[in-house]
Nucleic acid binder design. Structure first.
Lengths: 167, 167
DNA sequence: TGGCACGTTCAGTCTTGACTGAACAGCGCG
DNA sequence: CGCGCTGTTCAGTCAAGACTGAACGTGCCA
């Protein structure tokens, strides 16, 4: 009986985790279901899950799973792999995906700097350019600092892998 | 005639700028109208604009302007100021707002690290912890690096101000 | 060639939330 | 006091888009 209850608790915790990842996705303007799928893949076995397994695990429609996996694939979060002697597609986390995703997110920074730059050309002669130039300067700073930060992370990741995981 | 045409071009360019800021807001899940209001304030005179001026400049309803200014105030983008002998509220860009706003955005990072941490406790014994630990480690790295980056920016901003603008 | 198991597509439903416009509340001046 | 000018609130409208479920391909095996 105790084992059963333990399984139940565990199942609820997993379900809650999926929901949290879903909400995190929603907070950056991506469909919640895609987040849940990603969560399921993060918790799932190494060689990934099939669409059928995902529909069952999440209680969602096939259509919804299909569009979610396609989105995750498009964003580079997951790979679609096929095991030999099995014609079902499996979806698995793509290694190193996170770095690239975060990097792409920061490309937004460059567009914001340009936007501020454009705004500066539209000011009336008497107006205070400081608010806009503060925006421009800050995003410029970030744009400069970012590659170096990313390189440091890549380096650290390589170090960690050599040590065979987490020290 | 030429001056008129020039004004027209200028007006279109301003309008386009407002729309771009609106879209930038939308891309981070904030109402587009609030972005347009912020854009108008960035282009406007130093002592800010009244709600009435904003409704006219943007062609939006008073209600919409009201909720937008309140949101911008809440997020710390703008201050509400009152000039003497004028009972209208004026809204003006708050100096240094951008740094704090960006800082708050990065508090999300901490929650993502925690989420990955939680996911690690939910793995089955045989499963590969690497995808999740990669997420955890990366957000941890960013969480560590962020304060230092922010401090560097603050320092640079101070330097720039002392030089009286942009070198 | 049927039948089956997968996966995709698409019209329809439903929820969410931005925006409007009108009613409302405060404040100063006549 | 009541009028005019503020800004706020709120019910209603409208559009965007996530999700469903059924119809539709597609390839494999008998």
């Amino acid at each position: 009986m105790d084992a059963l209850r333990h399984d139940d608790v565990r199942h609820r915790a997993r379900r809650r985790f999926l929901e949290q990842v879903g909400l995190a996705f929603e907070s950056v303007h991506l469909p919640r279901m895609a987040g849940r799928v990603l969560g399921a893949l993060l918790l799932g076995p190494t060689d990934g899950l099939t669409a059928g397994e995902l529909t069952e695990a999440l209680g969602a429609s096939k259509g919804s799973i299909s569009s979610s996996t396609r989105l995750l694939e498009h964003y580079g979060f997951v790979d679609r792999v096929v095991l030999p002697a099995d014609r079902r597609d499996r979806f698995a986390i793509r290694p190193g995906a996170w770095t690239r995703v975060l990097d792409e997110r920061f490309s937004l920074v460059r567009s914001l700097r340009d936007l501020a730059e454009e705004g500066l050309t539209l000011l009336d002669p008497g107006d205070d350019p400081r608010p806009l130039s503060e925006v421009r300067d800050m995003y410029e700073f970030l744009d400069d600092a970012w590659p170096e930060l990313l390189a440091r992370w890549e380096q650290r990741r390589r170090d960690m892998q050599q040590e065979g995981g987490r020290p």
